[in-house]
Design a protein around this nucleic acid. Structure first.
Lengths: 221, 221
DNA sequence: AAGTAAACCTACCGGCGAGTAGATTACGGG
DNA sequence: CCCGTAATCTACTCGCCGGTAGGTTTACTT
């Protein structure tokens, strides 16, 4: 019987700052795996290699913790995208760069993406609100690019009015493609971005030129 | 003290069939409102105006209940879309009709849509699997339409290879637009479908014709 | 009217998980 | 080397919720 009791049970003490980071990392992992409600604080603590009271002491309640996860990951994502986009570029290049950055981030940070995309929306209350607003902001940014293209080329009011809808569709397409990517990882982020650009930009372009698709119902005889 | 005990407490007894329907309706409502985990069986019972044991007797455990919700609502959605689509129509009209039916359904059945889109994915386990598969099937159907267009017009292998990705993007765009719709209800389902067709179909068309968008990096001097 | 089966309820149990009390140990400064 | 403080733990409480036991009422049948 060796005196196991004497062995230091856990890693050496670390400054609060570091622990907080560890816990947040663990929380993102746990939340992304099974969702907010299914995640337990015990599990977070375990993954973070820390005891539960530390989690509460440093990060507060479960809601607090989740909010902090969301905000941190959202900021990381937005920063990553913003970094790749230069607002002096022409609109199509802005979109292209933004998409590449987005897919690249998702590829490197699956958990972050999952926690933002899947979990945050399914938690009623203030988070959903917050996330929705952030998503809305993204959509507005995209819409701005769309409108910029339009006005530059003399877009009609009609199309401008629908710009936000189109932007929402584009954002959704990107998100969906990101999810699809999880099951088809043998594709590069650049290729994904190309697909979307080809799908969507040419559509925008035609819209701008005034070409429209209209349903041609079979003429009733 | 009037003999309140004598007053029939609840609505008249109803055949099992009817009750099951009521309970399922209530469950969809409750699950869609706050998600699977946050929903309580007591709340379902209350909304259904039935006592909890009835829920268990008729629909089984919480998981069973949720699964039955998902399956029923998914079937309703798929049927609604299928009903609007005639596979003899040309591909663009198929897409158009499908999109219209989809948006129409979502407009009429918000809870169904929410429970399918938001909640089902965030519940780990067999549901997520099931839902994912169903979504994958939808994507394949769309992909088939895309490919049909392509081959008819002599599409290249490259584009065909990416058809599934494009289909995923389109499905995602539609879903996202549906969500956007919730915040902007003053738009008709037909208009939504038009937007998407204009955005996407012209893109497909150009793809088929061999036109592609390519990033033109500023030539390094 | 009596019997029976199905519809329906009240009232409870057991466990899980959020959150906490309070002791304990390591590190830095004197 | 010793003390204070920050870091950290063990070990609990307590409410909520999934699930159930077992009885009661209604409605149909004969």
């Amino acid at each position: 019987m060796q005196e196991k009791a004497k062995r230091p049970r856990r890693a050496r003490r670390l400054p609060r700052e570091v622990r907080e980071r560890q816990i947040l990392d663990a929380a993102v992992e746990v939340f992304s795996a099974n969702g907010y409600h299914a995640a337990s604080m015990d599990e977070v603590a375990e993954v973070a290699e820390v005891s539960k009271p530390m989690v509460y002491t440093y990060l507060g309640s479960k809601e607090d913790l989740f909010a902090k996860c969301i905000r941190r990951e959202a900021k990381r994502l937005l920063d990553a995208v913003a970094e790749g986009v230069d607002t002096d570029m022409p609109p199509d290049m802005q979109l292209w760069s933004g998409l590449r950055s987005f897919f690249s981030f998702v590829g490197d940070n699956r958990s972050s993406w999952l926690v933002l995309h899947r979990q945050a929306l399914s938690v009623g209350g203030s988070f959903a609100e917050e996330i929705s607003q952030m998503r809305a902001r993204s959509i507005e940014l995209v819409a701005a690019v769309v409108v910029a293209t339009g006005t530059r080329q003399g877009i009609g009011e009609e199309a401008e009015k629908s710009a936000e809808g189109l932007a929402a569709a584009l954002v959704g397409a990107a998100e969906s493609l990101a999810v699809w990517w999880l099951d088809h990882p043998d594709v590069s982020d650049g290729l994904l971005a190309s697909w979307l650009m080809n799908l969507v930009w040419l559509g925008f372009g035609d819209l701008v030129k005034g070409e429209v698709w209209t349903p041609n119902f079979p003429a009733p005889t």
